[in-house]
Design a binder for these strands. Structure first.
Lengths: 337, 337
DNA sequence: TTGAAAGCGCTAACAG
DNA sequence: CTGTTAGCGCTTTCAA
């Protein structure tokens, strides 16, 4: 094991100045009362010696670290990498460090992560759960340790924790509605095989929009499977093989939507004239394809801000109260409808 | 501040069993000698009481945490989010936690991050530096604290630290060569405005390939600016306004390359017949566009593995020795050439 | 305003 | 194999 070398502690600073280390501690943290003169002197000397507070000792002593943990199913999809990136930025500004964990969509891994968080006495947790996290039970340990947590985007079905969600029902409803208004009558829906509520909500929105427009729901137009572009490709193939083909397709992810467009173009179906396509997420990838993909956007900056505020409120107020914030999605019209 | 509630410590476990807490410590860590019977008893009881080791105390006592820090300029580009995601996975498996930091391409932020890392006594650091980090000096504090670090993809120009780099010269060389072999004669090069060596190396590779094929280097074919799709779009516009237009374009990032393709298609220039395009990074976005973008891939799994191995070697061996690993890139041929 | 004392939870070193 | 002692660097509490 490597040993630290030049480690300067408050005692070193104190010794140099011929004062007590407690005074140094006070001065450096701007707490208690220290004569201005002494304080300045201490800060100068600390700087001079290259003193860096030992966070390990501080956190240990304070029984709590200044680390915020972010738990996501997967860091690679645009939605999560953008969320984490933005979240980190404001957390860093507020003086927190951020630890990131990936559950890889496995509830068991998620549980392990949460358990390990206890050990780190993190200040708070922001989580988006795995596709099949229904129970909140493995988050209970956090509650019993008094560690606040907030869910974003994907929350357990039954939870009393604070959460920042998107109105997925509305997003799908609006998207389908937009296609119908532009003259489409046979709208299909492509989902992932994931069971999470956000996808079920979108399905409900889809159904409701059909109903409100006097269109009948046809089961064969609802397909699911996969998460990526290639999956959109195969699902589109399936849909276009139907006797009564769709003239509009709503995909629960932009990547899937892009796969759909790729299939349609390959088979000389024109988008959006013959078939309109809408996705979810406002992934920049959507503007790479041709035509550019119309998408349901869930404002990430807004989600980041809301979840950070909720979390910080709980950390500061020391109460783990329930608060639910719903973000309204917005359709970004591009070329595919 | 919220206070922890049910915190179970080794002393609690010891008290319950009527033994000394040091024995509990030994048993739980499988060190020293403890009678098997006692050990089993301890583990059972610890589990029963829901004991979770206080990492804060452990790390403090050990003067070192089991946290690996990853510092990247920006988490959003595919290259970095994929690297971090993969890195995290193998680090977690090896029992390390990962803290991620973004320098936002600012050397000053990078310096702050490094300084704060000292406080956390992280076990090691993996970094890809900002576009204008030339000096390694702000990493010196790590060295003096005995914290090993490894650079990946982007390293300071002069460094004695271990690093995992891509042979960018070769990547550009091969890409240009491929275009020439397919009959192109006026190859342009679009770079970012970033000054980092990796981009200069690519430029050198570009020039060398021209030379080796007996083509003359024309300064007007080398343009730079921006980092994103829209930048590729405007640079392409600039290039196609030249008297003597290019018939092949190498972009230093896939996103830029996609912007180029979008411009060309918009102006009815066919790709790859009239103009071939190649990018860098193997960003999945490249398959969203039409035609799909040919790209220079730098194997991320290989880079992750190499840098993790280098870092772990240093952590384990307690020597901060210099080692440089170069990853050879590979061209992935798709439709744009 | 400053100092002295005590202890957070854990582990290394030594003793038994 | 198990217990005792001591201390990591810091901060809170109490006393001067």
């Amino acid at each position: 094991m490597i040993e630290s070398k030049n480690t300067v502690t408050i005692k070193d600073v104190a010794r140099e100045l011929g004062i007590h280390h407690v005074t140094v501690s006070r001065a450096l943290r701007n707490t208690g009362s220290v004569k201005k003169e002494t304080r300045d002197q201490i800060k100068k000397k600390a700087n001079e010696l290259g003193y860096k507070p030992n966070r390990l000792a501080q956190n240990f002593r304070n029984k709590r670290s200044n680390v915020l943990a972010v738990v996501v199913p997967d860091l690679r999809p645009y939605f999560f990498s953008k969320f984490v990136s933005d979240f980190m930025e404001i957390a860093q500004e507020a003086g927190y460090s951020v630890m990131i964990f990936q559950s890889s969509e496995k509830a068991s891994v998620e549980k392990e992560i949460i358990d390990s968080l206890i050990g780190y006495r993190v200040a708070g947790v922001i989580a988006s759960v795995t596709k099949d996290t229904v129970q909140e039970s493995h988050f209970d340990v956090l509650k019993s340790e008094g560690i606040p947590y907030v869910f974003f985007d994907r929350a357990p079905e039954k939870t009393e924790a604070s959460q920042v969600l998107v109105n997925n029902f509305q997003g799908a409803y609006d998207a389908v509605n937009a296609m119908i208004k532009s003259g489409k009558k046979e709208i299909a829906y492509i989902s992932t095989h994931y069971q999470h509520k956000i996808f079920r909500d979108r399905l409900e929105g889809y159904k409701e929009a059909l109903k409100d427009n006097g269109l009948t729901y046809r089961e064969e137009l609802v397909v699911k499977g996969g998460f990526f572009m290639k999956d959109g490709f195969v699902q589109a193939e399936r849909l276009m093989a139907l006797e009564k083909k769709p003239d509009g397709i709503l995909a629960v992810r932009d990547e899937i939507g892009i796969g759909v467009i790729k299939y349609l173009k390959k088979t000389d179906v024109s988008v959006p004239e013959d078939v309109a396509v809408i996705g979810f997420d406002n992934d920049p990838m959507g503007v790479a394809c041709e035509p550019e993909l119309t998408t349901v956007e869930q404002s990430i900056p807004l989600m980041v801000e809301s979840s950070f505020d909720l979390l910080l409120g709980q950390i500061k107020n020391a109460k783990l109260n329930f608060e639910k914030k719903v973000i309204e999605p917005k359709i970004i019209f591009r070329g595919s409808i």
